[in-house]
Design a protein around this nucleic acid. Structure first.
Length: 441
RNA sequence: GGGGCUGUAGCGCAGUUGGUUAGCGCGUCUCCCUGUCACGGAGAAGGUCGGGGGUUCGAAUCCCCCCAGCCUCGCCA
C-alpha cells in the first residue's frame, strides 16, 4: 500500500492506510500499547494490541497498516497536530531495529550538554528542537537566494582552494597541493568582486575556512558565508539599502514559514525600525563612553562589550535590534576598501550588528585600477598574488560594493541559541571535526 | 593563548568539619497493568567518583601534576 504521511492522516478518517516512520515514544499497558510514530511531517498516536506492538523499541523503523479513527472528544490531545485522530494498528512490519539509545530522545526538551549532543550528532538530528534549528537555517539561506535573484543577481560557486593569501589578517589553513602549497579560502571576496566586472550582480552561498585560534561561542573554523556583490552603485548607501532589503526579506520568510520553530525556542524576529540606524565607529565609541564611562574612543574596532552596548543603544534610542556601524580605519581594512573621500583615514566599510554581535561586514570597494595597484604595494602584498583580481579592474570596472552574512550566526541569533555550534550541523572548531580530536589521537 | 568554573552509572545531576555498602531523576532489563499521550506500579542490573601521584588509620571530598569540557577575554574580512 502507498505510504501516507503523518500530517495527512487527519483528512483520512475511516480509511485504512500505511504509515512509515520511527517509534518516537511507547506507552505500554500490556494488552494495549500506544506508539507515537514519527515521520518527517510529525507525530501520530498508534494504538494496538500488546501482541502486535509490545516488542517495539524506541527508534525502531516500522511500516504500520492501520485504520484512521477520530478520537472521542475527551481523548483529543491538543498538544499534537494530529491529536484529533489516532491509528488502530492492523499490521506491523519492522523495517529496521534500533540499538539502545545513548541519550534520552523522547523528551520534549533534549536534556544533554552540547558536547554530548555533538558526540551523538546523527541521533540528535532526530529531535524536533534540533530539526527546528536547521529548518530555520534552510529558510534563511533560501530567502537570501531568492531576495537576490529577484534583484537579478547571478549565483556563482566560489573556489575553496586558493593559491595565495593576499588579504593577510586572519590565519589560514594550508593545503598540501601536489608539489605546491595552497590554502583554504577565508572568503570569496576577491572572486565576487572581480565577477561583478563581467556579471554586474553576483552572490554565493559557500563555505569559508578560518584557522583562528578562537575558542568562543560564536566562531567556527568552517562556516557558511552568504556573499553578495554588485556594481554601478552611486554610493555606499546603495550597498546598505540592498543589505537591508535582503535582511528584511530573510526575516519576513522566517516569520512566515517558521512559526512553529520560533515558538519552540520562544524566539522572535529582531525588532526593526523604519530604516536600520547607521552610525560611524567614532560616534559609536563616543556614545559608549557617554553611556558606560568605558573609553574605547581610540580603539580600531568594537570589543564584544562595545558591540553589545551599541546594540542596546540602537534598541533603546532607535527602536531597532539592527544597527550599521561604518567608517572603520582604512589602514586596518583590506587593500580594496574604499576610503571616505571626505575623510580618507576612515573607510566606507560597514558592519551590521544585531543582538549584540556582528552579523555582516561589507562596504564599497575600490574600482580604480591605479588606486588598487597602489594599495597592493602599500599594504605590502605581492602583485602576482592578486593578478587575477587586478586584471578584472584593468579593463573597465564600475563602482562596486557588497556584503557578507554568516548563516550560522543569523540562525543562532534569531533563535537565541547560546553557542554557534548548535547552528551548524557538523561544526568544526579547534577541538572537533565530527569527533573530538583529543580522543581520536 | 590568559582567566574563571566544571569533570560522580548510558543521559542529566546531588553528595563538607575526610569515616562503613557513593545516591536521585530519566533511560535499560524483568514482572503487573485495555485509554495512555513525558502513562502508572513493583523489582533488578549498571560506578576504577576524568587519569596519575601525594597527605592520612581512612580520600569523590585535602594537596600537586596531567587530560578533557564549558564560559569569558584576546585574536577575528
Amino acid at each position: 500500500m502507498e505510504r501516507t504521511l503523518v500530517e495527512d492522516t487527519i483528512n483520512k478518517i475511516g480509511e485504512t492506510i500505511t504509515l512509515k516512520g520511527w517509534v518516537n515514544t511507547k506507552r505500554d499497558h500490556s494488552k494495549i500499547v500506544f506508539i507515537d510514530l514519527r515521520d518527517r511531517t510529525g507525530l501520530i498516536q498508534i494504538v494496538g494490541t500488546g501482541d502486535l506492538l509490545g516488542s517495539l523499541k524506541l527508534e525502531d523503523v516500522v511500516s504500520i497498516e492501520g485504520l484512521v479513527k477520530a478520537r472521542p472528544e475527551k481523548m483529543i490531545n491538543p498538544d499534537l497536530t494530529t491529536g484529533t485522530v489516532e491509528i488502530e494498528a492492523l499490521k506491523l512490519a519492522v523495517l529496521s531495529h534500533s540499538a539502545e539509545l545513548p541519550i534520552d530522545m523522547s523528551k520534549e526538551t533534549l536534556e544533554v550538554e552540547l558536547p554530548t549532543l555533538l558526540d551523538y550528532r546523527s541521533l540528535s538530528f532526530r529531535h524536533p528542537k534540533i530539526q527546528a534549528i536547521f529548518k530555520v537555517q534552510a529558510v534563511v539561506i533560501d530567502a537570501f537566494r531568492r531576495a537576490l535573484m529577484e534583484k537579478d543577481f547571478l549565483e556563482f560557486q566560489a573556489p575553496s582552494i586558493i593559491n595565495a593569501v593576499p588579504e593577510g589578517g586572519s590565519e589560514v589553513f594550508k593545503v598540501d597541493y601536489f608539489d605546491h602549497e595552497a590554502y583554504l579560502s577565508q572568503s570569496p571576496q576577491l572572486y565576487k568582486s572581480l565577477l561583478t566586472t563581467a556579471f554586474e550582480r553576483v552572490f554565493s552561498v559557500n563555505h569559508i575556512f578560518r584557522a583562528e585560534p578562537s575558542a568562543t561561542t560564536r566562531h567556527l573554523t568552517e562556516a557558511v558565508s552568504l556573499d553578495a556583490e554588485f556594481n554601478f552603485i552611486e554610493s555606499v548607501d546603495e550597498v546598505l539599502d540592498m543589505e537591508e532589503y535582503v535582511v528584511r526579506y530573510i526575516f519576513d520568510e522566517v516569520q512566515q514559514h517558521c512559526q512553529k520553530e520560533l515558538a519552540l525556542f520562544n524566539a522572535t524576529i529582531p525588532l526593526m525600525s523604519e530604516k536600520f540606524p547607521i552610525i560611524k565607529l567614532r560616534d559609536a565609541q563616543e556614545i559608549i563612553f557617554e553611556r558606560t564611562g568605558r573609553d574605547c574612543r581610540t580603539e580600531k574596532d568594537l570589543a564584544p562589550d562595545d558591540e553589545r552596548e551599541i546594540c542596546a543603544w540602537a534598541k533603546e534610542e532607535k527602536g531597532s535590534d539592527l544597527v550599521f556601524v561604518s567608517h572603520f580605519l582604512t589602514k586596518k581594512k583590506p587593500f580594496y576598501c574604499y576610503p571616505d573621500p571626505a575623510d580618507p583615514e576612515y573607510a566606507l566599510s560597514v558592519d551590521l550588528l544585531c543582538r549584540g554581535v556582528e552579523w555582516s561586514s561589507g562596504g564599497q570597494r575600490l574600482n580604480d585600477y591605479e588606486t588598487i595597484l597602489k594599495n597592493v604595494h602599500e599594504w605590502g602584498l605581492k602583485e602576482e598574488d592578486v593578478a587575477l583580481y587586478l586584471q578584472a579592474f584593468k579593463f573597465g570596472s564600475p563602482p562596486l560594493g557588497g556584503f557578507a552574512l554568516g548563516a550560522e550566526r543569523i540562525t543562532m541569533y534569531i533563535l537565541g541559541l547560546k553557542n554557534v555550534r548548535e547552528a551548524s550541523m557538523f561544526p568544526r572548531d579547534m577541538e572537533r571535526i565530527d569527533l573530538r580530536l583529543s580522543s581520536a589521537k
